Simulated scan of single mutants.
Amino acid sequence: MMKGLKKWRFLALLSALTVFLSACGEKDLTTLSPAGQVGKDQHNLLLLSLAIMTLVIVVVVIIYVLVIMKFRRKKIGENVIPKQVEGSMKLEIIWTVIPIILLLVLAVPTVYYTYKLADTKAMEGSNKEKQAEVVTVNVTAKLYWWEFEYPNQGIVTSQELIVPTGQKVYFKLKAGDVKHSFWIPSIGGKMDTNVENVNKFYLTFDEESKDLKEGVFYGKCAELCGPSHALMDFKVKTVAKDDFDSWVTKMKATKDRKTLGSVEQQGEAIFKQSCISCHATSGAGAGTGIAPNLATFGDRTRIAGILEHNDKNLKNWIKDPQAYKEGNMMPKPEKINNGKAFTDEELTALSAYLMSLTVEN
């Protein structure tokens, strides 16, 4: 009776896991359906290692079963001792050489792709004209947000990474506070961002993201960094080269952007009195690393990387950021507004102004 119950428990657990795991594999957030050459190379290595492990397991199980079947006491008797093979030179060579061969089969392509991925000479080239054609992104990870600076294009953004398809995009990774890790599961990676040194690698983006669920690939921090580590997301928009160049031009133009509408202008005035010391609203220039750049805030798909992009969530985030991302560095309004919370009218104006910061509409 108990054995039957245990079997049913196992089947119930397996069924539950099947339901939960069925949500895995979304195109915008899975390593099993890579959308870039680096991800495909890493996926092939994963399949190779899985095949080797499966082969080893199958061979061991077969030998185990054969030995059990052949040398059962019922078959050979109680007092029969099988032939002893201890010290057999032939067997010693076999089970030494085979693991070495398997390790070499796995090690050679692993070392090859490791060095291939680390080849970032193109972004350090001496020819400035050719270097300017390379898309390099300086990534700075902070608690709990991401800054993306494009030094060759002279622009900066935060939380949403925009990259062209069909070419290598080079990354320089660093952390501004504690160790983080940069990872775009569907594209490839991951690599640590450290405070004391810069890590470099490249990725390729083969598919445009416009047809995905929210029009973006998801990026993650893959290193436990604090209480809101699980909420440290960023989004990746992959576009054609011409669209990327157009976006760069629009980003440069944000330094001369004029605010239209009386409510938006009221919000801009409030922003300049309370928020401008940390946040920039121009995408031109270099990153400050103090707080997220808001030049494209109206184009984002999420607020604070996690909340649905709408007016209500934006107001709630401004009023109490700690309620949504514990440990983040954004202060409550009282600390930047002369000890007073923003009124509903001020929040409405601020929200309207921030939502108007767009380069795509």
Rank of each mutant, 00 (worst) to 15 (best):
T140V: 13
V156P: 08
I98D: 07
V163T: 04
V139C: 05
T157V: 14
Q84P: 04
Q131E: 12
S126D: 12
E92V: 13
T136Y: 00
S158R: 09
T96V: 15
E129C: 01
K128Y: 06
P99F: 01
Q131A: 11
N79E: 05
S158D: 04
K70D: 12
V111I: 15
G87F: 09
E147A: 03
E124P: 05
F148V: 01
Y150L: 04
T140E: 09
K130T: 02
I94A: 09
P151K: 00
Q167Y: 07
I100S: 10
L117H: 08
N79V: 05
N152Q: 14
S158Y: 10
Y144F: 15
K116C: 07
E129V: 09
W146N: 03
L103N: 06
I162G: 05
A132W: 02
V111T: 08
E129T: 12
L104V: 11
W146R: 06
W146V: 02
Y115H: 13
K70R: 13
S126T: 12
P109Y: 02
T110H: 00
Y113D: 06
Q167R: 12
N152H: 11
P82K: 00
V163Y: 03
A141S: 07
N127H: 12
E129L: 06
T96G: 10
E92W: 14
W145L: 02
T140K: 11
L103W: 05
I76E: 03
T110C: 00
T136C: 03
K116Q: 09
I76P: 05
K142G: 02
T120V: 14
V97G: 10
D119K: 03
W145A: 02
V111Q: 08
I81L: 13
V137G: 02
T110F: 08
E86G: 12
V137N: 02
G87H: 10
V80R: 08
R73V: 15
K142E: 13
V137K: 01
A141L: 00
R72I: 01
V97D: 09
V108S: 04
E92Q: 13
S158T: 11
K116N: 08
P99I: 04
R72K: 15
Y144T: 07
G154K: 02
A141R: 00
I155Y: 01
E78H: 04
P82E: 03
N138Y: 10
P151N: 02
P151H: 02
A132Q: 12
L106Y: 10
I100W: 10
G166F: 08
E133L: 10
N138K: 15
Q153N: 10
L102N: 06
Q153D: 08
E86T: 15
A132N: 11
E147Q: 14
M123F: 14
I81P: 03
V111R: 06
Y113T: 09
I94Y: 12
K83N: 11
V85I: 15
V137Y: 01
V139P: 04
R72G: 10
I76H: 07
T140A: 11
I98T: 14
G125Y: 03
L103A: 12
T140Q: 11
K74M: 09
W145H: 04
G87A: 09
A107V: 04
V139H: 01
V80K: 07
V108I: 11
I155L: 05
